[in-house]
């Protein structure tokens, strides 16, 4: 939707009417050139985002002060740390004078103090009578920033209204529908014989796709074996950003699978997955190297119930149950 609104992609049907100047921020630092200095990049990026050169010149000092990079203006940005880079980029974007600002989840960058500053700036923009369209899976940020929520499901409007109601619908809405398992989406040489029909995630006694990381949850896989296998295991994998973090199987190697329906239950511990979106992969493996696999049959959202540092992306994707103490 953002791509259509920002006119990057042309819609196939439908019509959008935009009243006012629109600026989109699908990424911070669009068009930054590593060889150019901070100063040159402010102009480059600002114009790319839709400001005129005169406008940038007028706001230049403000932008630089916001980014706190006065001393490094003449340094090529390739020598910047990633934090400095993002600060400069966001500073430019924050000074866009658009009536409507489209923002993707770009706030998930920079250090904590700068994130607060950015959110503050966005609130200021929203407060000054301009519209901010914020697209995010980060429920905390949505709660903090937004005044109304549009929930999209399969490209259609599922809900439009108040924030709290929207968020609870979002949390509940996930997982009511069983994810339909497309058999074409599996690859591997085990083409026939085992079909998966359902995958469900359960927590606190109800089915959900939003997982509270502070307690354990279950994944239940249902399917049918069209013939019996002397040895077959069902595999489950968890991945993020295309990297599989770990996988598990439902039975030891050599366990047989009789013909008929089956259901495999995986119990996963609390305090394992850090907040964010996780892809669940599903597959089957028959001893003798026949297998099928789909790296993403479902996507779950691990919510941000964790306090403290555990919810920061920089601290890793998973954690373990550990014990620590300090002494003198």
């Amino acid at each position: 939707m953002l791509k259509v609104l920002s006119r990057i992609t042309s819609p196939t049907t439908g019509r959008v009417t935009v009243r006012g100047r629109l600026a989109s921020l699908l990424e911070v630092g669009t068009g930054f050139h590593p060889e150019l200095t901070g100063r040159e990049n402010v102009f480059l990026n600002g114009v790319i985002l839709g400001m005129s050169r005169r406008e940038i010149a007028r706001k230049f000092d403000e932008i630089v002060a916001f980014a706190e990079l006065e001393r490094f203006l003449e340094t090529p940005v390739k020598r910047y740390s990633s934090g400095m880079y993002v600060r400069l980029a966001f500073a430019v974007a924050a000074h866009l004078d658009a009536d409507i600002l489209l923002v993707d989840e770009v706030l998930a960058v920079g250090d904590a103090a700068f994130q607060r500053k950015s959110i503050g700036k966005m609130e200021e923009v929203a407060g000054s009578g301009r519209a901010v369209v914020f697209v995010s899976h980060n429920l905390g940020a949505v709660r903090a920033l937004c005044s109304s929520v549009l929930l999209l499901e399969g490209g259609r409007r599922a809900f439009l209204g108040g924030v709290e109601e929207g968020l609870s619908r979002y949390e509940a809405g996930w997982g009511i529908e069983v994810v339909p398992l497309d058999r074409r989406a599996f690859h591997g040489n085990l083409k026939t014989g085992v079909e998966f029909t359902k995958i469900e995630t359960w927590q606190h006694g109800s089915q959900t796709l939003v997982i509270d990381p502070t307690s354990e949850f279950e994944v239940i896989v249902r399917g049918r074996a069209e013939r019996s296998f002397p040895s077959l295991e069902v595999n489950l994998g968890f991945s993020r950003d295309g990297v599989r973090l770990f996988s598990c199987h439902d039975a030891p190697r050599g366990t047989s699978m009789p013909e008929g329906t089956f259901s495999s239950r995986f119990e996963l511990p609390a305090h394992l997955l850090r907040p964010g979106r996780w892809s669940i992969g599903l597959g089957a493996y028959r001893q003798g190297a026949e297998w099928k696999w789909n790296p993403e049959v479902a996507v779950i959202e691990v919510s941000e119930k964790w306090g403290g540092r555990t919810d920061e992306r920089e601290s890793g994707w998973v954690t373990v149950a550990f014990r620590a103490e300090r002494s003198r």
Partner: peptide
């Protein structure tokens, strides 16, 4: 204010000189 209307483009949508001019700074 101004209004932008985004619609599917069909056929031989030609070159929009006015738009090019609007983006001269870029």
């Amino acid at each position: 204010d101004w209004v932008t209307i985004i619609e599917p483009r069909r056929g031989l949508a030609g070159l929009d000189m006015r738009e090019l001019w609007a983006y001269r700074d870029l």
